[in-house]
Amino acid sequence: MPYSRSEMAARAAADIPEGWVVNLGIGMPTAIADHVPLEREVIFQSENGVIGMGPAPPPDRVDPWLINAGKQPVTLRPGGCYVHHADSFAMIRGGHIDLCVLGAFEVAENGDLANWATSENDTAPAVGGAMDLGAGAKRLWVLMEHTTKDGRPKLVPSCSYPLTALRAVRRVYTNLGVFDVVPGRGFVVVELAPGVSLEQAQAASAARLHTSA
């Protein structure tokens, strides 16, 4: 059985050690925070200047002044603080973020990431902070479905969509498993979701999947 979305988020969350400063992209990656227990102190950074985000508040405790990058209400943990946008991105671009997890349209076997525009003629592509995070975070992971809704592979030999960051992705979590991007080698299977065979994962990938052996 492939991982559900919640299981994918939980799988990625399991690999985040205490003490890391982590930025989660909008969409699926945001859910990773729900799977990191509060006693494992991970500092979640949101690019709109919230350092040390806590879980979403109950509906009757929403602070309308406190939102995350996805513009959803969040909380601030004890120890958290606020900065302005230039300081927030200094933190990102200056290499102070241990991990960023983003969604993607495609990841190439050399680590290229495409996640902001669907073509050169995209009618109003929206880049947000993705290029800053891709270039600036100490490590970049991707959390995404293994294929598009119509079954096209998203692990590819080289990206066909416009790039967000070059040779940046280190690891990919999908519904079929966990894959490292190893320079000079490509995608290496770390593990497969329970009941998913290497053949199945390979059939859903355009790039070659290597086994660690």
Binding site: E47, H84, F89, T123, A124, V127, G128, G129, M131, D132
Partner: peptide, 19 residues
């Protein structure tokens, strides 16, 4: 407006914009 060609757009990465 963008589709109708009635507004120009310059896309800037968020951190580059702030900087």
């Amino acid at each position: 407006l963008y589709k109708a060609g009635k507004i120009e757009l310059e896309i800037v990465p968020q951190g580059t914009l702030a900087e």
